[in-house]
Amino acid sequence: MTGAATGPVLRVRGLTRRFGGVVAVGDVALDIAPGERRAVLGPNGAGKSTLFNLVAGADTPTAGSIELFGADVTRLGARQRTRMGLSRTFQTSRLLTGLTVEDNLYLAAIGVSGGRLRLLRTGRDRTAREQARRTAESVGMTDRLATLAGDLSHGEQRQLEIGLALVAEPRMLLLDEPAAGLSRSERQLLTALLLSLDRDVTLLLIEHDMDVALTVAERVTMMHDGVVIVEGTPTEIRADQRVHDLYLGKAHV
């Protein structure tokens, strides 16, 4: 942990994923510094989601390596990466629909802190419950604690989705299109929430929505056809001609 403080939090080299003959991600290199806010942009089919799944451990690469907090995690599953301090959200909400909001957050808390198999209630339970309620407050869901996750509105489900990733106090947060399907006002809330995150947390976000991405991110990686075509600050990205041709031009039609 101490050694990782200076090096990059996430270090990706030569990452490649092929599906049959199709190269979804081809030879991608990526370095993300501690505390950095990074957005990955690109049109549909650019390989963003595949890259995201490879980093999260939901998919295994055909070639290349992934280092997380200084350790090689290329062959580790999602569960181990989560316990190392990586959290992710899903593009379409994956909530525990039969459980209350509080129980969702509670399970997310003990998923990392331990005690997952406990059959008795102990003092540690209280800590996890408090953690759950604190997170509910930070994502603005205190009044929905007793509601079943399956009964939430779409916007609330997106809020809980982010809450689930935040409870365990991750060192690195992966957000898969957090603004998907949100209204304008909900997007503003989301942007504010992301901007208010602790600087200890490193953020990697995949986003289709330029407003959210370019406001939150400090650096932007632009992907097309599975490869990185340009990397830079939001201002540089906005000015880049290739980006305009590829993406901004179409997005503003």
């Binding site: 999260a56 569960r79 989560t82 899903f90 525990l96 399970l107 997310a108 990392v112 997952r116 689930l164």
Partner: peptide
Amino acid sequence: DDPVRMAALGY
């Protein structure tokens, strides 16, 4: 409810 989510939560 969702095995994939639970794996992502560390279970």
